[in-house]
Every structure is written in structure tokens, then in C-alpha cells.
């Protein structure tokens, strides 16, 4: 555990909590892509199946449980409790265009052809693109609430910090996982455009809106 890994995890946790609180406090999930949240729930479910097979640390287990619980709670709020506020008309990204190729790729490119390992690989690939429905929704409506941009910022920051963590681990521990690193790079790149808008607009007190 190094500082980049820890702050990455905390940044990830912050993102998840920010989103939950935003929906809970405003009693509305307007502007939030339910599809992205469904994909993240699927990501955590398929990745953390090792909760049943191996114990790494109390930290590891509790964080996994928190991530999974929060992602299911978020999906519940969007599709059940505050369904009336869900903006399904703008959440039109075709998720099968992500899930099917990612599923195929995880069968073809993995560390080991075993069920748990393929599901883990699937979750890594899927996480890298799971935010696309949300970004698509923002590009479609042309704007995002400021609190939603904070959520996206912490979510992007998390993977960027993981990249530094992997460089650190490569040099100091000889640890290197090509699948995680390539997917992590892809995931971080997807946020670059957003990071630019976040720094140039949101941090200067303006609302994030895209030119028509």
C-alpha cells in the first residue's frame, strides 16, 4: 500500500458517496445515467467474487463490501425509489455495444482461462468504459450539475492515481499487471476531455455546459 493507491481508493469512495448523497439530498437523479450505474454495479459484482474465495485484509474486504453496497444502493435509488426523476429519455447509450465486445475480449485476453479470472478481467475491461453512458448523456443534454461534475472528477482522479500507484509498484515491488494497466490507461484517457472542462469551468465557479 502506497500513498497513491490509498488516495486513489479514497477518491473512488468519495465519488461514490458524493453521488449517493446528491441523489438522496435532492431526492432526484436528474442528469445521472442509470446505465453507467448499472454497469458499475456489474463491475463490482464480477470483480469482488473473490470475497468468497480469498481474504487479503480487513481494509480490502471492507472497501469491497462498501463499494458493492453503495453501487447497489445507487441503482436502487435511480430505478426504484426516485424512478420518477430518472431522465431515461437522455440516457440512450446502447450498453450492449460495451458489454458484448468487453465480454468477448475478456474471454480472449486474460491471465488464466478460469471462471473467476475471466469475470475479473471482464470487470476490469468494463470499468474502463462504464462511464461512457454518463459522458454521452452530458454531451446530449449539453450540461451537467456541478455536483455531478465533482462526482466525475473524483471518479477520474481515482484511476489516474492508480496509474501512478502502478508505476510506483513496478519500480519498488516489481509488480506489473498488463491487463489492469492498459485498461486503466484507457479509462483515464476517457476523462481527459472532462478534466479540462472541470478545471477551466467548474473550478472557476461556472456551470459545466457545452457549446451548442
Amino acid at each position: 500500500m502506497n500513498i497513491f493507491r490509498l488516495t486513489g481508493d479514497l477518491s473512488h469512495l468519495a465519488a461514490i458517496i458524493i453521488l449517493l448523497l446528491k441523489i438522496w439530498k435532492t431526492r432526484s437523479c436528474a442528469g445521472i445515467s442509470g446505465k453507467s450505474q448499472l454497469l458499475f454495479a456489474l463491475v463490482f459484482t464480477t470483480r469482488y467474487l473473490d470475497l468468497f474465495t480469498s481474504f487479503i485484509s480487513l481494509y480490502n474486504t471492507s472497501m469491497k463490501l462498501i463499494y458493492v453496497a453503495c453501487s447497489y444502493a445507487t441503482v436502487y435509488l435511480i430505478y426504484m425509489k426516485f424512478k420518477a426523476t430518472y431522465d431515461g429519455n437522455h440516457d440512450t447509450f446502447r450498453v450492449e455495444f460495451l458489454v458484448v465486445p468487453v465480454g468477448g475480449l475478456s474471454f480472449l485476453v486474460n491471465h488464466d482461462f478460469s471462471p473467476l479470472e475471466i469475470l475479473w478481467t471482464f470487470s476490469i475491461y468494463l470499468e474502463s468504459v462504464a462511464i461512457l453512458p454518463q459522458l454521452f448523456m452530458i454531451s446530449k443534454t449539453g450540461e451537467a450539475e456541478t455536483i455531478t461534475t465533482h462526482y466525475l472528477f473524483f471518479l477520474g482522479l481515482y484511476r489516474a492515481l492508480y496509474l501512478i500507484n502502478w508505476i510506483w509498484r513496478y519500480y519498488f515491488e516489481g509488480f506489473f499487471d498488463l491487463i489492469a494497466v492498459v485498461a486503466g490507461v484507457v479509462q483515464t484517457i476517457l476523462y481527459c476531455d472532462f478534466f479540462y472542462l472541470y478545471v477551466t469551468k467548474v473550478l472557476k465557479g461556472k456551470k459545466l455546459s457545452l457549446p451548442a
Binding site: H12, S57, N60, W120, Y162, F175
Partner: peptide, 10 residues
């Protein structure tokens, strides 16, 4: 690295 490593990352 070992192939069937324990996944300590989240």
C-alpha cells in the same frame, strides 16, 4: 509477477 496472484487492489 505470479499468474494467479491475490488481487490486493480494488
Amino acid at each position: 509477477y505470479t499468474l494467479l496472484r491475490e488481487k490486493d487492489e480494488l
